[in-house]
Structures are given as structure tokens and as C-alpha cells.
């Protein structure tokens, strides 16, 4: 985290305030983050700003990162587990320029990791912050369109409807078919969307030593899971939560423990499975 005692007036490249956002905005976002950390899983509204990229490209995550980043930080950005996709590269370069931070692709070296759709395979440690980009922060939205009602449902812990959706999934498909953005109960109180990470990653959220921050730019919500907080994936006693398994291993590093992407490599439909987490995969080769 930056030293907040004195406002940072350095203007990166002479045009922007440090870390792009003005100090007032960063303070407002930090207040929202503090509240989110204090009430794990609760969605805190914040005055989201227009960012120099469209909604859906990580505006929420970038604002959170901008509010917490300082010169001593080392930033890693991943998109679907990869450090080298356009979005990941752009955001990394953005912060290298406006916040003058070191960047890395190595999970262990990073102090702040902004991510879209994955949690790194390498276990996180105390002091690290994982920033999620969230498209739809409200886990009940598909079941209850009214915001006033979803807020009430959260306030009163009335979560029958969430369980109804899982029931319906089993009734239709014989199992809980949801494979990503799988709803979790945080600290036994709030149901939370873990963002569209594969359910494979859900167990990594549970009692993680790293701080998890979630930013939704379009809907202007921030929520958080503080370190060591219990995060339980919803399920039924007779249909317990399970993660994906592959019979194959990674074609590049041979991992049997990581989340694999399926690739079609030729016109004959030959398939290959490789690790989704590029840093993890490279580290094993």
C-alpha cells in the first residue's frame, strides 16, 4: 500500500496524477475497500470513475489497483491465467507508466495481482493482494432482477433462492452444472460472486493468506475477502461441491494439479491440454 500520509503529487509523464486517479477519488475508493474488508462479502457501492478503457475490460479492477498501489509494489496482471494477453499486457503497461511500479509475471514476486477469470496456481502468501475484475457483482441478479430486493435478501440472509437455482440445476442436469462464477458463502454471512473464475479456483479462496479485493466498474461495487476468511462453495449434502478433474495432464509441463485449457491444434481436431496459468506452467518446465 502507498504511504497515504502525504498526498502523492508526482504527475506521471507530466499529465496525470500518480496512478491515474486523483487523490480524492483514491481516498474514496480506499474508504470503500476498508468497509468491504470490515464486512467480508458485502458489496460496497463506490463512485466509480470513467477509465480510459471500456466497461468489461477491467475498469473496476483497475480502479481498485490504482487506489492501493504504491511505488514499492510489484504488479502482476493476468487474464484467463495468462500474463501475455492483450488486456493483461495493456494494464501492466498502464500502471508501469502512471504508477511507476515494477511489473512481473511471477506470482511469487508480485505484491499486487490483478486478475480476470483465474486465481494463480501458485499458492498466495501473506502480504499479497489479489484484485479481481468483476463483470456482475450480484450473485442473485439472475434470480432476482430488482436491486432493492437483492439488497434486502442479503441484509436478511434470505438465501433460499440461491439454493433454488442449485436445486434446479440438479433437477435439469443431474448435478450442479455451474462451472464458473460458482456462488460462495463468505464468513458464514454473505453470499458472494467470486467473479467468473472456474469453480476449480473456489477452494483457493477459502482461508487464503492473501487479501482478495473485487472491483466491478460498470456496477460500481467493491467487495472483499480478508486474509484467512472462510469461503464455502454452496452445495447440497448429497450433491457436494466438487472441482473439475482432467484425465490428461498439461502437454507442456506435465502438471496434473492445475486448471487445463483445451486447445485444438490442427484441422483434424487434434486436442491438446495445457495449463491456463502461464507463469505456473513455465516455472515447471
Amino acid at each position: 500500500m502507498p504511504d497515504t500520509s502525504t498526498p502523492d503529487t508526482t504527475i506521471a509523464e507530466g499529465a496525470y496524477n500518480y496512478a491515474y486517479l486523483d487523490e480524492q477519488t483514491k481516498r474514496m475508493i480506499r474508504r470503500a475497500i476498508l468497509k468491504a474488508v470490515a464486512v467480508p462479502g458485502y458489496q460496497v457501492p463506490f463512485g466509480g470513475r470513467e477509465m480510459p478503457l471500456p466497461y468489461g475490460w477491467g475498469t473496476g479492477g483497475i480502479q481498485v489497483t490504482a487506489a492501493i498501489i504504491g511505488r514499492d509494489d510489484t504488479l502482476k496482471v493476468i487474464d484467463q491465467g495468462a500474463d501475455d494477453t492483450t488486456n493483461a499486457v495493456s494494464i501492466r503497461r498502464f500502471f508501469a507508466r502512471v504508477a511507476e511500479v515494477a511489473t512481473t509475471t511471477c506470482t511469487e514476486d508480485a505484491t499486487v495481482i490483478q486478475t480476470r477469470h483465474r486465481v494463480p496456481e501458485t499458492p498466495l502468501k501473506e502480504g499479497q493482494i489479489l484484485v479481481f475484475q468483476v463483470p456482475i457483482p450480484e450473485p442473485l441478479r439472475m434470480l432476482e432482477p430488482r436491486e432493492t430486493e437483492t439488497r434486502t435478501l442479503h441484509a436478511l440472509s434470505e438465501y433460499g433462492v440461491m439454493q433454488v437455482s442449485l436445486y434446479e440445476s440438479i433437477a435439469r442436469h443431474g448435478r450442479i452444472s455451474k462451472s464458473y462464477n460458482y456462488p460462495v458463502m463468505v464468513n458464514g454471512r454473505y453470499i458472494m460472486s467470486p467473479s467468473p473464475i472456474p469453480k476449480f479456483d473456489n477452494p483457493k479462496l477459502d482461508r487464503s493468506p492473501a487479501l482478495q479485493l473485487y472491483g466491478a466498474g460498470r456496477e460500481k461495487r467493491i467487495y472483499a475477502v480478508p486474509p484467512h476468511t472462510p469461503v464455502k462453495s454452496l452445495d447440497f449434502d448429497d450433491h457436494p461441491f466438487e472441482v473439475e478433474h482432467w484425465s490428461e495432464c498439461c502437454a507442456l509441463c506435465g502438471s496434473k494439479e492445475s486448471f487445463l485449457d483445451e486447445m485444438i491444434v490442427d484441422d483434424a481436431g487434434k486436442r491438446l491440454f495445457v495449463c491456463s496459468d502461464t507463469d505456473y506452467c513455465e516455472g515447471r518446465r
Partner: peptide
Amino acid sequence: LRMGVSAGANIGERLMAVGARHYGDIR
């Protein structure tokens, strides 16, 4: 009613709302 979910889920909702977590029993 919840028109978008099955009859079983409609009936089971109150049970789940008060903590029923056994799919087979609810069904």
C-alpha cells in the same frame, strides 16, 4: 410462484430457505 423454475424447486424453496440442504429429501 417462481415461473422460471420447476414445480419441485417452487415447493422446495421454503425448505431451503430455512436450511434444508439434502437434495434428495427436498425433492
